[in-house]
Nucleic acid binder design. Structure first.
Lengths: 340, 340
DNA sequence: CGGTATCGGGATAACGTTATCTCAATCGGC
DNA sequence: GCCGATTGAGATAACGTTATCCCGATACCG
């Protein structure tokens, strides 16, 4: 017993099937689907029930092809599997604008990033939000020339003039530094990520400027490099030993905060610490971790707004927006220096 | 000065433009793009350079429409912004299969889930991987009837017979319980999530069975409910006080582990704890957190394999796969009961 | 009552691909 | 040197939408 004999077997019903079922012209079905007011009430009803009877679902591929617009934004981020609070704000903002965000991760790998972005381009997404890796982005040039709307988040796209929204890393480091100084610290160490990473470089540079402003040169106070447990623990050891040990530490990102706390757990308990990036575990430690937190919601909102602006008018001048960060004092950064 | 006069202004170049530029037929361009071997070397070269000159990029919308297949899988997960390790494995497995995964979050909201899934259906994704919420999924029935390939992850789809891959929650609880018993504990409490959530219900039920098997009825030992700090802390208080306080606690998911540890930090330090779900912070605590960890990679691989199988043959019988979990003993679950 | 707005709705042509069919040209075998 | 097989490449028709025209019917105005 065929339940729906009017649809060609094995295929999803199309507008043609609906039109045949309702006994109207193809164009009329389209009008009904798109709420065109010029269709009489009776025909609307006939079409509606034909749609229901056949379980017709419009095919967005054809729609997008015809319209030239997909109503879709792509988000190419470093990690979907990791904490990515900005993406949440991005999805919210896009949903509010009637757009769909489809995300894929680049795993911080040049090949994968390129593959993901190019796939999104070939799918003719209206715009792409990219958390770029540090490498060369020459492959973007023809895409941009062809009209791709793109906004970079968290890091700029190296060597290319594109919209981007960044956290105020410099102010964040300055705030953290000043906070520790205000609590009596004079010898402050910095544990940072590999300086080939843009944000790491920016934060490390800001820290160097703080040291210089304070008068001390003390390059022994700054330790940047790849995120490897041994490297980090060794850096902490050298920063906290010697004739002039640090009494406070600033960590350059959430992972470094974790590793630092892990090391402190077993080797020190009287060193102040201010971390960059907030995270769930910040309030798990004893004392709670004082952090410089970025404003995820503001970043997400700004990114979507910029992207929509550029889509609406590709000739918009390139803008670079810096979003303020805030210090969350929770205890770990408010202890006085230990007596030497 | 027009740089590319051969393309109609304002439009991206199409195969027609490339064909004109190269002086060949449209079909020949298609053949070159798809590496059809039946094109002579010289023409291939002409077409290739025309493609380069015009920066031609194929339009996947048209391709997908014509082919009837999109090479795209959708992932509708509860949270993109939260730790979602399974998604990583999913992306890996899909990439290895030449498929693209595009993810969107449902925020555990019925409306949003439906919107996301239906959008993916209208875009004719080849298959959808869904982390379903607990509510009714009637809206899926017509989609499934129309040939949607769907695999549920972590939770089954209520009231519908669809493929799903779940963690072995029962074995996980049993393992945790046995582990604590082996270390001398007799009074073990359970702090769980709202039992309207499938996994929470399954874990709580398994725990009740453990209690029963042990001989004790002790409903005072099991505390489930929504994830609210006060509720959890209150539950812990009542479990650890009274004439017969618990000497060990099993927590039902990562968030509950965090809250429990947070409470222990200030109120108790000699209670054993085994958490469900592994997470980065498990090795941050003192002692390190013993957990029942699910096998993210196995879940992701299995889900993609099942989805591809179903796409290849929609008539495949529905399968429900349970992936084993493993106990990661790290210290917090190996302490003996405190002297009473 | 004739002519022209007005409105509802149908035919048909895109959108940018790929697949089918056809045909011209080349090659080998006897 | 002729014929069938093979190869290379073009014309044309889909795929499922929406947009542009156009036409027939009703309503309205002079």
């Amino acid at each position: 017993m065929q339940e729906k004999p009017r649809t060609r077997k094995g295929r999803r019903p199309t507008m043609v099937d609906v039109a045949r079922e309702a006994g109207v012209a193809l164009r009329t079905v389209s009008r009904v689907v798109n709420d065109d007011a010029t269709v009489g009430a009776e025909l609307v009803e006939r079409v509606r029930s034909a749609i229901a009877a056949l379980d017709y679902r419009p095919d967005e591929r054809a729609r997008h092809l015809r319209l030239g617009v997909t109503g879709t934004l792509g988000a190419a981020v470093r990690q979907l599997s990791h904490v990515n609070p900005v993406l949440r704000a991005v999805e919210r903002a896009a949903r509010a604008a009637g757009l769909m965000v489809l995300a894929a991760s680049t795993e911080d790998d040049e090949k994968i990033e390129r593959h993901v972005v190019e796939s999104m381009c070939r799918r003719r997404f209206d715009g792409i939000l990219l958390e770029p890796i540090g490498a060369d982005h020459g492959y973007l040039v023809p895409e941009l020339a062809a009209g791709l709307s793109l906004v970079a988040v968290d890091r700029p796209v190296l060597g290319l003039e594109v919209d981007c929204v960044l956290s105020d890393n410099v102010a964040g480091i300055e705030t953290a530094f000043a906070h520790l100084v205000a609590h009596g610290h004079r010898r402050i160490a910095y544990i940072g990520d590999d300086e080939r990473i843009y944000t790491a470089q920016e934060r490390a540079t800001a820290f160097r400027a703080c040291l210089r402003a304070q008068g001390g040169a003390a390059d022994a106070m700054i330790h940047t490099g790849p995120i490897q447990r041994e490297r980090i623990h060794h850096a902490l050891e050298s920063a906290l030993s010697g004739p002039d040990p640090a009494t406070a530490v600033i960590t350059g990102n959430a992972t470094l905060s974790v590793e630092t706390v892990r090391w402190f757990r077993d080797h020190a308990d009287d060193v102040a610490i201010v971390g960059f990036d907030d995270s769930e575990l910040a309030t798990l430690l004893r004392p709670d971790l004082t952090v410089v937190a970025q404003d995820d919601a503001a970043i997400g909102d700004t990114a979507i707004t910029m992207l929509r602006t550029r889509i609406a008018d590709p000739a918009t001048p390139v803008r670079k927006v810096t979003v303020p960060v805030t210090l969350q004092a929770r205890g770990s950064g408010e202890t006085p220096p230990k007596r030497t």
